[in-house]
Design a protein around this nucleic acid. Structure first.
Lengths: 120, 120
DNA sequence: ATAAACCCTAACACCAGTGTCAGGGTCAAG
DNA sequence: CTTGACCCTGACACTGGTGTTAGGGTTTAT
């Protein structure tokens, strides 16, 4: 299938599909006229890429283990676990920070409201 | 005082001070030789900017109310509250999303570990 | 008078993925 | 043969704050 069809099937833009290719995530064959030719497997590959992107991994990180997980079970790709763990740590750091900001904002909102009431 | 001294006093890099100026957050006088000349008030202004940046506001957003809060109490600057509220909503959206990702990661880690154990 | 320590502006780089445009092929149906 | 719907590459833009460098002026102390 050509790129437009793959885009339609996966919901990923043509632009992004070409970007994934440049990042080494997917390598379609080429027709004689230069058009990219994707197999049905490509659909699965792109879905897999989407899944990992949604986990907050970068295309570069995904490139490091995609070939492996496409062939074997995720559990047996040595690269995956440490990446998951460090990503989880990142997430937790971000959660802490966001919660801190949230608390500050809430306190600030509360104190503004109090000040306004006192002046009435 | 010159820019280096203000940077030392506030812990904000010279680069950032010049950036804040370009964003309209602070407007130092100029000496005859072109050097920026900051007053003591500038220290307070920069501390205020830091505070708002830490709340997750952008320099552009800060520019919208900085003059007001420097003159009056925060409670009486009409621009502040809606901004705080919408920023809080942003934060909450991000928290939801991060928690979702975190949960996915944790589930995935758990299932990988289970699969590995089963194969032993 | 020279070196060290300041200051100035302008501009590129970064992160990461996507949009968009320019300029140009290919192909099928009418 | 033309129109429209595809496809191709390459390149700039954007986000937002900061680092860094290049190229050059000023001031202060020795």
């Amino acid at each position: 299938m050509k790129i437009g069809e793959l885009a339609a099937r996966t919901g990923v833009s043509i632009r992004s599909l070409r970007y994934y290719e440049r990042q080494g995530l997917i390598t379609p064959l080429r027709q004689a006229n230069g058009y990219r030719e994707y197999s049905l497997l490509s659909v699965e590959t792109v879905e897999t890429i989407k899944l990992y992107l949604n986990l907050g991994l970068s295309t570069e990180e995904i490139a490091g283990f995609l070939n492996c997980v496409l062939k074997k079970k995720e559990a047996f790709c040595a690269e995956v676990m440490p990446l998951y763990r460090s990503k989880l740590e990142d997430i937790e750091r971000q959660l802490l920070q966001l919660n801190q900001i949230k608390q500050n904002l809430e306190e600030r909102i509360a104190s503004i409201q109090q000040e306004q009431q006192e002046s009435e």
